[in-house]
Simulated scan of single mutants.
Amino acid sequence: MMKRSTLPALGAFVLFGCGGGESDQPSPAPAPAPAPATASATEAAAAASGAMAVDWISVDDGARTVTIDLVAGSTDVNNRWNFNGYANGEATVVVPVGYAVTVNFENRDPVNYHSFSVLQRAASYPAIFDDATPVFEGAVTSNATSMTEATAPGGGTESISFTASAAGEYALVCPVPAHAVTGMWIGFDVSDSGESGLRS
């Protein structure tokens, strides 16, 4: 008895079942996505580095200025010993090197006096500061180490200005006794890449 070969039938199935009759021309390329809106150099640097824009940090690249609205005790975080709701170095303000910085400081803590000074970044801070001299001239509020003469609770304000003249990693620290050691500090970086904003 003669066996019939199934090979020609199988070949026909493979040819037509796998689309052998279709054109070998490549599929048309998908339409390109619309171009994103043009960002400023500062926004682009911030996006690339992870810093984000926040409403309490304003940067004017043309004038080379930064304005920071820094609020002590704005939330209940860390028993109100915080800056804009951040404590224990969990956020970092970033400004470009060489920019003039103005800090409008407000103390919303209803009970405690607070202050700030731009100091070297450290793993920990002392309970009592013998000296709170800032790394940049003028980068400290009045009577920064006093429990009774720093910026008053319940809405006391003070504005200071300084130039962020050297790139590096610093911190905004409250040198009122016992405040920094219990976490009242956040990072303050001066960037030589033009970056600005907040990293958290």
Score class of each variant (00 low, 15 high):
38 T>V: 15
30 P>Q: 11
187 G>H: 10
91 A>Y: 04
175 P>G: 06
5 S>G: 10
144 A>C: 07
2 M>H: 11
171 A>M: 09
167 A>D: 01
62 G>W: 04
174 C>A: 05
131 D>R: 03
153 P>G: 06
122 A>M: 15
197 G>P: 04
107 N>G: 02
196 S>T: 09
69 D>H: 11
117 S>M: 06
108 R>M: 09
84 N>L: 08
37 A>V: 15
50 G>H: 05
86 Y>S: 07
154 G>D: 07
96 P>I: 04
153 P>F: 08
106 E>P: 00
188 F>N: 11
35 A>T: 15
91 A>P: 02
74 S>Q: 12
59 V>H: 09
54 V>L: 02
179 H>R: 09
2 M>S: 12
83 F>K: 10
17 G>A: 12
140 V>N: 10
157 T>L: 02
120 Q>A: 15
177 P>N: 10
158 E>A: 05
159 S>T: 15
2 M>R: 14
94 V>S: 08
151 T>I: 15
31 A>C: 01
110 P>S: 03
124 S>M: 09
83 F>I: 11
20 G>T: 04
126 P>G: 01
126 P>D: 01
157 T>F: 05
9 A>G: 14
109 D>Q: 00
150 A>N: 07
160 I>Q: 02
46 A>D: 04
195 E>M: 06
77 V>R: 14
90 E>Q: 10
77 V>K: 13
96 P>M: 04
88 N>E: 08
30 P>I: 11
18 C>W: 08
79 N>C: 03
95 V>A: 06
100 A>W: 01
155 G>M: 11
13 F>T: 12
163 T>D: 06
6 T>L: 15
32 P>E: 09
183 G>K: 07
40 S>A: 01
125 Y>R: 01
25 Q>Y: 03
149 E>V: 00
43 E>Q: 14
78 N>E: 08
13 F>D: 00
48 A>P: 00
31 A>S: 14
38 T>S: 12
63 A>R: 08
93 V>H: 04
115 S>W: 06
25 Q>H: 08
155 G>F: 10
20 G>N: 01
161 S>G: 15
72 A>V: 03
64 R>Y: 00
6 T>F: 15
115 S>Y: 06
71 V>M: 06
14 V>Y: 12
110 P>C: 05
8 P>L: 13
130 D>V: 06
94 V>P: 05
63 A>W: 03
192 D>A: 15
83 F>M: 14
184 M>S: 08
71 V>R: 11
149 E>H: 07
111 V>F: 11
